[in-house]
Design a binder for these strands. Sequence first.
DNA 1: GTTCATGTGCAGTACTCTCTGCACATAGAA
DNA 2: TTCTATGTGCAGAGAGTACTGCACATGAAC
Lengths: 123, 123
Amino acid sequence: MEPFTPGELAVMQILWEHGELKPAEVQQRYPEPIKNPALRSYLTILVEKGHVTRRKVGKAYFYKAKTKQTAAFKKSLKSIIQGYCDGSVRSLMLNLIRTEKLSEDDLLELKRLADEATQQGEN
Amino acid sequence: MEPFTPGELAVMQILWEHGELKPAEVQQRYPEPIKNPALRSYLTILVEKGHVTRRKVGKAYFYKAKTKQTAAFKKSLKSIIQGYCDGSVRSLMLNLIRTEKLSEDDLLELKRLADEATQQGEN
DNA sequence: GTTCATGTGCAGTACTCTCTGCACATAGAA
DNA sequence: TTCTATGTGCAGAGAGTACTGCACATGAAC
């Protein structure tokens, strides 16, 4: 699964959020003004690539995401980890804590989450 | 700064790691076999976009990254956070802990890092 | 100066992404 | 049945990416 182009990703995110829509509805929710045929070309490409399915209802088609959001998330995260963090999630975490200015609350939350995960891992 | 293409990114990573190289040296380190002119076209594009500078030494040019690795890292991380994690770093962390299978050691390390950051934040 | 390896510049090809325009199809209203 | 709004299919343009090939330039060796 090669990465989504910006246009494809914008469409996927709308479909992930809203479920099943027809082109005009995706068009309305697109983050910037886009003409209907341009938007439809993205949908067509996504169908060809297997990331989206469609079914006919009346005279119109409804489009639905087939590729799961979590799968796409993992994929793009993996490419960042390999590209910038020596391939290790640990290194990514380190970078995150160092380069992003996390608030006190964020750090406490982070520790709590790590604690929870540790507990679960022991069961 | 729009994102690097795969070819551009591969070249940037070599330059980030090795400093200043000539095309043939970048070519040698390229992760897959690539012909010299193909590699040079990437360098030319990167110079045109302002991500790389070059200077003449003898008859050859030496190329050096101008865009910093941390800037590129932050940029691509930001696009993931906005695309998949409601725009919040906290949500990214949550997703990381849930979807990546972190080892016991990783989680302990994570808590230690968060602790360190907390301490520093208090100074 | 000639030769030779190494390096450069440039023109061009194939493919993808983004986007446009237009003709045709369909469902419902009159 | 005809009209209209809405939706579809398709052909293609323009820019950018990912290359290839080749002629020309340069510095070093002889």
